[in-house]
């Protein structure tokens, strides 16, 4: 009986691993003096995680969860409510759209697609930030974060693929 319960619990846990990993990264990225350092610009790790799980776990990975995770991220960072969900949904929609063309391709091609998708997302983010504040936001810091996000993608991809294998999501 106890075994059945623990199996069920593990099964439920497996289902929410993508959401939990994004939540963890969202909290990690706002921690002062965290593992990433309290740097002014750090990679947008959640975006990489959304891209990864959209490709590899689209079946269970749903839109509502992304909106909730985006709102939690907005609350933690202080961005306008609804800002991060738009970015998450953009990445989710594009990667779902191109999933068949990307999934079984070599890693460098997936990385290239991610750099394009995240590039578009950062342009949207810059446009919203500038529109909301009625002035041009500094494009340099966006470019730096974009570069850091793209550079850090292989590490995050490796980490998430290991998690995926470990829990056989």
């Amino acid at each position: 009986m106890r075994e059945v319960f623990s199996k069920r619990l593990f099964k439920s846990f497996k289902k929410i691993v993508p959401e939990l990993s994004i939540l963890f990264l969202a909290i990690l990225s706002v921690q002062p003096q965290s593992l990433l350092g309290n740097s002014v610009i750090s990679p947008f790790l959640c975006l990489s995680a959304v891209f990864y799980w959209s490709l590899h776990r689209q079946g269970h990975f749903n839109v509502v969860a992304l909106i909730i995770l985006g709102i939690i991220s907005d609350i933690l960072t202080g961005a306008s409510l609804g800002f991060t969900p738009i970015l998450f949904l953009t990445v989710f929609a594009i990667s779902s759209w191109q999933k068949k063309n990307v999934l079984l391709k070599p890693f460098h091609l997936i990385w290239g697609v991610f750099s394009l998708v995240s590039g578009l997302t950062f342009i949207i983010a810059w446009a919203i930030t500038s529109f909301v504040s009625l002035q041009y936001a500094d494009i340099g810091s966006f470019a730096i974060q974009y570069a850091m996000t793209v550079i850090s993608f292989p590490i995050l991809d490796w980490l998430l693929s290991n998690i995926q294998r470990a829990v056989a999501v």
Binding site: S29, V30, Q31, P32, L36, N38, S39, V40, I41, S42, F44, L76, T77, G78, A79, F83, A125, T129, A137, D138, S141, F142, I144, Q145
Partner: peptide, 15 residues
């Protein structure tokens, strides 16, 4: 103490 510190270019705020 600082509880959270946003490290992105979108917004510069902290709790």
């Amino acid at each position: 103490r600082v509880v959270t510190h946003s490290g992105g270019p979108f917004v510069k705020s902290m709790l």
